[in-house]
Nucleic acid binder design. Structure first.
Lengths: 358, 358
DNA sequence: TTGAAAGCGCTACCAC
DNA sequence: GTGGTAGCGCTTTCAA
């Protein structure tokens, strides 16, 4: 039925071993022989059997890319960049060393994260890229560390992208950590410098590194300006929620209820910021004249949606691409296996001063 | 080194065959035996070898999902919905029948589309979902038809999502086609009904079904209103470009240059519409008071970015999920293998009348 | 209900 | 440079 490597060998009048060598291009093969084999491949329309190949070679050409949410452009952009490094190799075009990137959406669920890792382990994946913040639960962290250790031991390359290094840094794991803390700090410093004193904070979901680091940066900036105000006050001006528009909308309403004299809102990311802006508009408040809004991530549509939005730019494409290259072993790991990706402030309007003057 | 099924069998004091049966749950196994096997699996931390399994069974648990651009939320949303149907099965948790969705970003390149299909064919994928418009090149269409035919013959399920059926409809291929023509027609009918007479059109990339169908709808509406104006005039008010923001920005500028008295612009999709709006703003024109803008796809951020945007809603989540179920064989194919997904008009502001009154 | 054993198609080692 | 061939780890008849 299906054409096998043996069929190709027969037609080319060579041994299966030679066909394999031609296809993999690992060993020297006489030019004439190679051409005969390639012609036979074309004639028979032969397609390599991946599973058989992976079984024999004890490794597959699959590379897993885990994201929290495919529908979120934050992840789409990173995953797309990683994938084009992984799969964009234009090999021989036939059966060359193309890798297949497997993008898996965990929905932010720890269980599914582990499930996908098991699935990838089962497939003997060549590498795994984990994007986005990590869940900060001791049990889950332990499970992840163990699982990643086993993957690494089996020869799978591990790359963390936009996620801090493992608690026990592993030589086999490369980490590209985003400077979420620094970005959060600079964002709030900027608002404080403009004269804002009552700033609400819409945080991401609890128990995530990203959420915690951005919030730490925010609070550090407040503290440095003498605006800390104690734990109770900080919590009063903080609302947690998922990284979506609706969460931002609801949270902004809640913040205004708790503190009607708010002059600025910092959101966990741009999508949340958009929702917050909508909530403000619906209450007849203008952005940024009445209330300034700041976001995070600088997604492509942010500037259109909120021209005055102040935000933080994370180099998603660059980071994703670098993660892809690390996964392919095509770039040297950073010193110590850890690199920090900068998070730069993007100021879109100088008008974002508090209503009373600043 | 690595734990194999034989190791599990030895520890559970059964044959490898029995372990296999327990893991796959296809054959009856005595409860006591099953439990012994499962305990051994846990004790040894056994993970099934996917390639070996796929080789022996002649099918893998991979499902390919092809998209044009992962960074585009249009595809992210569809792919995410498909993936959660495909991989969200919560099997035994151990080695159950979980499928692994492989999201592949082709960048809109016909070659990469074929390359990915070959890669998936090589992996003996259980199913393939093709999303987004098809490239309308006879050679490519023929190549695709042949390739899909071979995949189908090898037992791979094929699902088209947001793409018209193949020229020679194949029983083995299920198609969920978007009503791009109808959506485009209704959009322009709406503008015409408001009194617009000089309407610019920013089309998608040439040679794509989506581009052509949306444009056909637009032109049909113009013709029905007696505003057709001849081929030359239609071409004068049409500019093609990729589905991104920059393209919309540039195209809007070009359209205004060609026809300064434009009162409305219809864009190929919302992202393009956003760019067009930015271009209008930069020229001191207000949307929609001076120029109305219409988009397509109704992405989540569209309303925030352009509150007055008139657009067309495609049920991306529903379509993606349905495609996922079709790929899993968990939903009966539509009659004739073809279903049309509706495209509904979304009107966000009734103020979008032409400046002169209408 | 369980075991024995024959492959699945390919790779890589060892000869020549 | 090329051929022979022994597995890789699993599934699946066929018997028991």
């Amino acid at each position: 039925m299906t054409v096998t490597l043996a069929d190709v060998a027969a037609r080319a009048r060579v041994s299966p071993a030679t066909v394999s060598r031609v296809l993999n291009g690992n060993y020297p093969v006489a030019t004439a022989t190679r051409e005969r084999v390639l012609r036979a491949v074309d004639d028979l329309d032969y397609v390599l059997n991946g599973p058989a190949s992976s079984l024999a070679a004890a490794t597959s050409d699959l590379v897993g890319v885990l994201v929290h949410d495919l529908a979120d452009p934050f992840f789409g952009i990173m995953a797309g960049a990683a994938q084009s490094e992984i799969g964009g190799q234009e090999g021989t075009g036939r059966a060359g060393g193309e890798k297949l990137a497997v993008v898996c959406s965990t929905g932010g669920s720890p269980e599914r994260e582990l499930t996908y890792l098991t699935l990838l382990q089962r497939q003997r994946a060549a590498a795994v890229v984990l994007t986005g913040g990590a869940v900060e639960d001791p049990a889950h962290t332990a499970a992840m560390t163990a699982k990643l250790g086993r993957l690494a031991a089996a020869g799978t390359r591990i790359v963390l992208c936009g996620r801090p290094p493992l608690p026990e840094p592993d030589q086999a794991v490369a980490a590209l950590a985003f400077d979420n803390l620094g970005g959060g700090r600079r964002l709030t410093e900027h608002l404080v410098a403009l004269g804002h004193r009552r700033i609400g904070y819409i945080a991401g979901p609890v128990g995530r590194t990203t959420t915690r680091h951005r919030m730490q940066g925010h609070r550090a900036a407040l503290a440095a300006a003498g605006l800390g105000g104690g734990a109770a006050e900080q919590d009063r001006l903080t609302v947690h929620g998922p990284y979506d528009r609706r969460s931002g909308y609801d949270a902004a309403g809640e913040l205004l209820r708790r503190e009607p004299a708010l002059t600025a809102i910092v959101a966990a990311n741009d999508t949340v910021a958009l929702g917050a802006c909508a909530a403000l508009r619906d209450r007849g408040l203008r952005v940024p004249e009445d209330v300034s809004v700041a976001g995070f991530d600088d997604l492509p549509f942010s500037a259109d949606a909120v021209p005055a939005l102040t935000t933080v730019r994370l180099p998603l494409v660059e980071a994703g691409a670098r993660a892809g290259r690390l996964a392919m072993g095509r770039e040297a790991p950073p010193p110590g296996g850890i690199a920090t990706v900068p998070a730069d402030l993007v100021v879109r309007a100088s008008t974002a001063r508090p209503p009373g003057g600043g």
